[in-house]
């Protein structure tokens, strides 16, 4: 296909703008990683701007790794992200599938019932009481069970399932498949975009968990990584003779350790993620 000159100019401008935006987005990440790998003295000597470290050191990472309970908290975060996300996706898919079926009894009632928490949340203290009376306080299950299903994610998933051709259900039904067989053998394999999308949504939320950790967990070794990061960053603002204000390199090492694992998941799911959001948006 022959492109006209104006088309080429147009493409050049668009590509240049996109590359520029890409650089702008990439710059802070590069800065964070570079600072975390730079000796603090060198960071200061360079006036606080380091894009490519001249000498690389992992001292800041070693120091962050010595923060109290950081290893346990890292393990907890990985655990609640993996198990929590699996549980979230499993339950959400089950609910969304049921709500997407035309022959569900009281479908409207159940849909509205699921919508209510989207509009009105329980509030901090009532939620705390639920966690307390279900004996989930100070347990990792407090991160997972009270938020097994997000109404927003449920709606997206339900909308996606509703777009699937009814013929698929009918042909499966004619072949003698039950609801579970239809869901797991037919619907889920064609719904990978939405599953990747909601998995990422739940996964990011679990990985970034801070509030539940300080609210429901009393044992320092059962908290999440974000709490360690926050406590370390907060030290900069406390007046205590004993406290050493964390250096920027230590802060950035903390940011890298707490952010990079989840950022690394994005490239693998990005294709599904965009597709999933769009497909979910068609009908709802």
């Amino acid at each position: 296909m022959v492109k006209s000159r104006s088309n080429r100019i147009y493409n050049f401008i668009i590509n240049s703008i996109l590359i520029l935006i890409g650089i702008i987005c990439f710059f802070p990440m590069l800065y964070v990683v570079s600072v975390s790998l730079t000796p603090y003295d060198e960071f200061l000597r360079q006036g606080g701007i380091v894009l490519f470290p001249r000498h690389i050191t992992f001292e800041a990472y070693q120091q962050f790794w010595k923060e109290p309970y950081v290893k346990e908290c890292f393990g907890n975060t990985v655990f609640i992200t993996v198990v929590g996300t699996a549980a979230n996706v499993f339950v959400t898919v089950l609910m969304a599938y049921a709500l997407s079926r035309k022959n569900l009894m009281f479908k409207k009632f159940f849909t509205i019932y699921c919508l209510i928490p989207l509009l009105i949340s329980g509030g901090m203290i009532p939620t705390y009481l639920i966690v307390k009376y279900t004996r989930l306080l100070n347990s990792l299950a407090a991160f997972i069970i009270p938020s097994l299903v997000s109404p927003y994610v449920l709606l997206i998933t339900r909308a996606f399932f509703s777009t699937i051709d009814a013929g698929l259900y009918e042909s499966a039904r004619i072949d003698g498949a039950g609801e579970f067989r239809i869901l797991f053998s037919i619907i889920i394999p064609v719904s990978m975009p939405i599953i990747a999308t909601i998995g990422l949504m739940y996964g990011v939320a679990h990985w970034n968990e801070y509030f539940k950790s300080i609210m429901y967990i009393s044992d320092s070794s059962k908290r999440t990584l974000q709490v360690v990061l926050r406590e370390m960053l907060n030290r900069a603002n406390k007046l205590e003779a004993d406290i050493s204000v964390p250096t920027r390199t230590l802060q950035m090492a903390g940011v890298v350790i707490t952010a990079v694992p989840i950022i690394m998941v994005y490239p693998f799911l990005q294709k599904h993620f965009t597709q999933g959001i769009m497909l979910g948006a068609i009908k709802g």
């Binding site: 655990f79 198990v83 004996r135 989930l136 306080l137 100070n138 347990s139 299950a141 407090a142």
Partner: peptide, 12 residues
């Protein structure tokens, strides 16, 4: 089972 056994502990 993972949720109930690995996660839970009795609150003090």
């Amino acid at each position: 089972m993972t949720l109930t056994s690995a996660c839970s502990s009795s609150p003090s």
